[in-house]
Computed example of a mutant assay.
Amino acid sequence: MSIDCGHSFCRECITDLLVNQRQGTSSPKRSHCPLCRAPFKKDNLRPIKQLENLIECLKELERERLCEEHGEQLHLFCEDDGQLICWRCERSPQHRGHTTELVEEAALGYREIFQKALTELREEENQYQSLKLTTKEQIRQWREKIVHARSKIHFDFENLYNFLRVEKCYLWRLEREKEQTLKSLQDNEASLEKQIQELKSHIQELEKKCQGPAQDLLQDMRDTLGRSLTVKLNVPEAVSLELQTV
Rank of each mutant, 00 (worst) to 15 (best):
H202K: 05
H154P: 04
L241G: 08
S27C: 12
E56D: 12
V239R: 01
R46V: 06
S92A: 13
E123D: 14
H70D: 01
V239E: 05
Q83K: 15
V103K: 11
P236C: 05
D187A: 08
N126Y: 05
I139E: 13
K132F: 12
V231W: 00
E207R: 04
K29A: 08
E207K: 03
K59Q: 11
Q23C: 09
F40I: 00
H32G: 09
N20T: 06
Q21N: 06
L121R: 02
P213K: 07
G71N: 03
T99D: 10
N162M: 05
G109I: 13
L54R: 13
D80F: 08
Q141F: 14
K41R: 11
V239N: 02
K116L: 12
Q244Y: 04
K29G: 04
S130K: 14
L229E: 07
E12F: 10
R63C: 08
D43L: 10
Y170Q: 04
L133E: 15
Q50S: 13
L74A: 00
L192C: 01
R176G: 06
E101H: 13
S27P: 02
C86I: 03
E144G: 10
E120H: 13
P47A: 05
H7M: 03
L133T: 11
K41P: 00
R165F: 06
R37H: 13
Y110P: 01
D4G: 04
Q197S: 10
L185H: 02
N159R: 10
I203K: 00
T224C: 09
H202P: 01
E79C: 14
Q180N: 06
Q219N: 09
L84E: 07
K209R: 10
T15M: 09
S31N: 07
T15W: 01
T135L: 05
S151T: 12
T224Q: 02
E125W: 03
A149L: 13
L45N: 00
D187S: 07
Q138V: 14
R122W: 07
V239H: 03
S8P: 00
E125H: 12
S31M: 05
A117Y: 01
Q219S: 06
L121A: 02
L18R: 05
T245I: 07
E124P: 02
E90D: 12
V166I: 09
L164V: 08
S184C: 07
I203C: 00
H70C: 01
C33D: 02
V235N: 06
K194H: 11
E189D: 07
I146F: 15
S240H: 01
R91P: 03
K209Q: 04
E112T: 13
R227Q: 12
V231R: 00
K145G: 09
Q83I: 12
